[in-house]
Amino acid sequence: MNQSTFRQITLAAALALAGAAHAGVCPADKVAANDLPGAPTAPVGVVDTELASIDLARENVKLEQRRLRLRHMTIAPGGIVPMHSHEDRPALIMVNSGEIYEYNSKCAVPILHKAGETAREFMGTKHWWKNTGSVQVDLTIGDIVNDKKPATMEKMM
């Protein structure tokens, strides 16, 4: 195989993987404010396990009261991750298995997240999640948490 063909194959593979890695997003015609009436406030069927963390006040970034945290979460069929905010807690969520719906304050319809996708949660995001399927959903979550804020997910679960 010549170098040009190799580059074309590599580029095609990278583009295919990049497309597959994006999480479900709100359809452009459904982006709208959503007050999420009746959103659940308590978890159901959720196991949230912290795997590791780094105190960011002790790192070069000097972010007082913040930790970079890695978690594993499972959501049973019918399970709910209750309403919460990401006003100061950015997160990346990898869906390892299953499918789960996100109900987001910026979207008029539920957003489906499938295995192999990564969801981004950042400033202004308020949402809750529900596993409407028949199999457990497994997530890996990396976030920057403010331990001095009483409403963190760690304290809710």
Rank of each mutant, 00 (worst) to 15 (best):
Q3F: 11
E50R: 08
L68Y: 05
A16Y: 14
V81I: 15
N60V: 00
M123I: 09
V47A: 08
P43I: 00
A39T: 01
A28T: 14
T132K: 14
A16C: 13
V25Q: 15
D55A: 07
K106R: 15
R120I: 14
E102L: 12
V135G: 07
P82C: 04
A33W: 05
D35H: 02
T5F: 09
P90A: 04
L68F: 12
G133A: 15
M1T: 15
A91I: 06
Y103D: 10
A32K: 13
G98C: 02
T5Q: 12
I100L: 12
A52M: 10
E117T: 11
L51I: 05
K148N: 07
A115N: 09
T125N: 14
A13E: 13
T41V: 10
Q8F: 11
V31R: 12
G19Y: 00
N96C: 04
H86N: 13
N2F: 07
R7Q: 14
G98E: 00
T41A: 08
D147N: 09
N104T: 12
V44H: 13
W129L: 10
G78F: 12
P77F: 04
V135I: 09
M157K: 03
L15D: 10
L51P: 01
A16M: 14
R89L: 02
C107S: 05
S85K: 09
W129E: 02
P40D: 05
T49D: 11
D138C: 03
M83S: 07
A14V: 14
M73E: 04
T10F: 15
G116Y: 06
K126Q: 06
W129F: 11
K106G: 13
I144P: 05
M94Q: 07
N60C: 00
E50T: 06
H72C: 00
S85A: 14
T132I: 12
V109K: 00
V135W: 03
E117W: 05
Q136V: 15
K62G: 07
A52Q: 08
R89S: 07
E87I: 03
